[in-house]
Design a protein around this nucleic acid. Structure first.
Length: 278
DNA sequence: AACCAGGGTGATG
DNA sequence: CATCACCATGGT
């Protein structure tokens, strides 16, 4: 992978001004898949239909080829930097004593505000799968069925309409296995407005999950991931095999409700903890 | 070679 | 309601 063309234009952010934001942990805790560390301290993230090249340098995070205006109107929101994570973390610390030592294993994880459709589709692909292969399948999905992003070598995430026109055989090129029929069912239901993603914003969490689960291949876990990462529902608590292990091990199998309205944020720190520390 | 991966479905007790 | 084989694919 080669770097996008460089210009002098960039936006530099002092990490000392932003508590609880570690880019590496935020990217690597399993919430997003379209990113790569192209060289030490250099990341390319494909989001908002464009490749974003980020450089880490001492206490600074540099958004390359990005104006101040673009940073403030797009990336501030995408990386959830407007949200007060001090308030969130204080809330979680007050809910559970053990959480503080778990959270200290990271310099900060933000819940990205990703595109709802991309998130839904990505986590349909994630089922019974591992992260490296999920990334590969998503890359092939975009390269084969997305649009080339002008001025770059990258491709956008394909729309529901594009995928709704395909068959499982068409999708065989991405080698998603039994998940192909689920991808197409999701695309069909959303392109036909049988499932309206916009209506999710006005639904309570449990009803939103049930609504998403009318799509084939979407169960409790995929719905929870979609709601947390695609709809910023911070009370949503995805439970995969790692989290179940962690809750048994660290909390004697306690219910996630102990983390209250920010359970989803707690979940990210616990996932990071068990994946990297245990 | 058997087991696992950010699980869900459908059949069966 | 709980359990369980099965689902494609690739890595260990």
């Amino acid at each position: 992978m080669t770097m996008p063309q460089n210009t002098l234009l960039s936006y530099k952010l002092n990490l000392n001004d932003i508590p609880y934001f570690d880019l590496y942990d935020t990217l690597n805790c399993g919430q997003c898949f379209r990113f790569e560390e192209v060289s030490t301290n250099n990341f390319i993230i494909i989001a908002k239909d464009k490749p974003l090249h980020i450089t880490l340098e001492d206490n600074f995070i540099i958004f390359n080829n990005t104006s101040k205006d673009e940073f403030e109107s797009v990336w501030l929101d995408y990386f959830d930097l407007n949200t007060d994570y001090c308030e969130i973390m204080q809330y979680l610390f007050s809910k559970d004593q053990k959480f503080k030592s778990i959270a200290q294993k990271s310099n900060g994880i933000r819940i990205l505000k990703q595109d709802p459709w991309e998130t839904l589709c990505s986590f349909i692909i994630s089922q019974n799968n591992n992260i490296p292969r999920i990334k590969g399948i998503i890359n092939r999905l975009c390269e084969n069925f997305g649009n080339k992003i002008p001025g770059s070598e990258f491709y956008s995430f394909p729309s529901p309409e594009t995928l709704a026109a395909l068959t499982c055989e068409d999708l065989s090129i991405i080698r998603s296995g039994f998940r192909a029929k689920y991808i197409i069912d999701a695309a069909l239901k959303i392109a036909s407005n049988k499932v309206c993603l916009d209506s999710i914003y006005s639904l309570p969490l449990d009803e939103a999950a049930k609504y998403l689960m009318t799509i084939k291949g979407v169960g409790v876990k995929v719905a929870a991931c979609t709601l947390l990462y695609g709809f910023h529902r911070l009370d949503s608590f995805p439970q995969d095999v790692w989290i179940k292990r962690a809750m048994d091990l660290l909390y004697n199998g306690a219910d996630y409700k102990i983390f209250g309205k920010y359970a989803g944020v707690a979940q990210q720190y616990i996932f990071n903890y068990v994946r990297n520390i245990l």
